[in-house]
């Protein structure tokens, strides 16, 4: 398994993702600088990590979405290879139209960093195949703009297509306003494109990958990806 992590000047979860992925899967992880124009050809998985890419001054992820490296990320995705955007990385994927939707400020109008419960609603994609359907997992969130928004008709569309992978829920798995810390429409925490190879989510799986960090639910995501790549590659 070969992983490339795209690093923008304001990325701050890049080192965390590199640590988690290499610790859990033993994958070769290559950092790719935002001014670069190419992703190594052997790359199976591209991760766009969390942070504040270019300071997030206009809209989160807006400028990063237009940086030179994103053309290669799009090309990588168009070949059916895997792209994962976490937090700011999810914002960048929506801004670059690889995923539908946009992020608004949290309903609290504050930055929120806390553990959240998520329901895994789609387990037939490379990112989640090790999870059980409707499994409840715990990942932390840490963002100011994470309220997932789509106009009603498009929202209906992604729901009908089964593109919602993660939904915020309560500890008992209830999809309610209670578990929905940032106010996302339909409690959406993570979605996948129609082809199933580009996933974006606001919560941080890399922060839930080691027991000493308080939980290992996120490690399953790395193991899912590894399993899929090993299988596809073989």
């Amino acid at each position: 398994m070969h992983t490339a992590v795209v690093i923008f000047p304001g990325s701050n979860c890049d080192r965390d993702v590199i640590h988690a992925v290499s610790e859990i899967t033993g994958s070769v992880v290559v950092p790719v600088w935002h001014k670069d124009t190419a992703i190594p050809t052997s790359t199976d998985l591209v991760i766009i990590p969390g942070g504040f890419s270019y300071g997030d001054y206009l809209r989160c992820g807006a400028m990063a979405a237009r940086s030179p490296i994103m053309a290669s990320v799009k090309k990588h995705a168009s070949q059916g290879k895997l792209v994962l955007g976490i937090c700011n990385g999810f914002q960048i994927l929506t801004e670059s139209k690889l995923l539908p939707g946009a992020m608004l400020a949290n309903k609290t109008l504050t930055f929120i960093c806390k553990q959240c419960f998520l329901k895994v609603e789609k387990t037939d994609i490379p990112f989640t195949l090790k999870y059980k359907n409707d499994q409840i997992v715990q990942f932390p969130i840490a963002h100011h703009e994470g309220l997932y928004f789509l106009p009603q008709d498009s929202l209906r569309e992604i729901e009908q297509n089964g593109q919602v992978v993660f939904r915020y829920c309560t500890s008992s798995g209830e999809i309610s306003e209670d578990g929905n810390s940032n106010g996302s429409l339909n409690n959406i925490a993570g979605i996948v494109n129609r082809q199933g190879n580009v996933l974006g989510l606001m919560p941080h799986p890399e922060r839930a990958s080691e027991r000493i960090m308080g939980g290992t639910d996120g490690a399953l995501m790395w193991n899912s990806i590894k399993t899929w790549i090993d299988r596809e590659g073989a």
Binding site: D16, H19, I112, C113
Partner: peptide, 14 residues
């Protein structure tokens, strides 16, 4: 107060 702070980035917070 503390939920407005990122308490975990860098993956060292035990």
């Amino acid at each position: 107060i503390y939920e407005q702070y990122d308490q975990m980035v860098q993956l060292n917070t035990v």
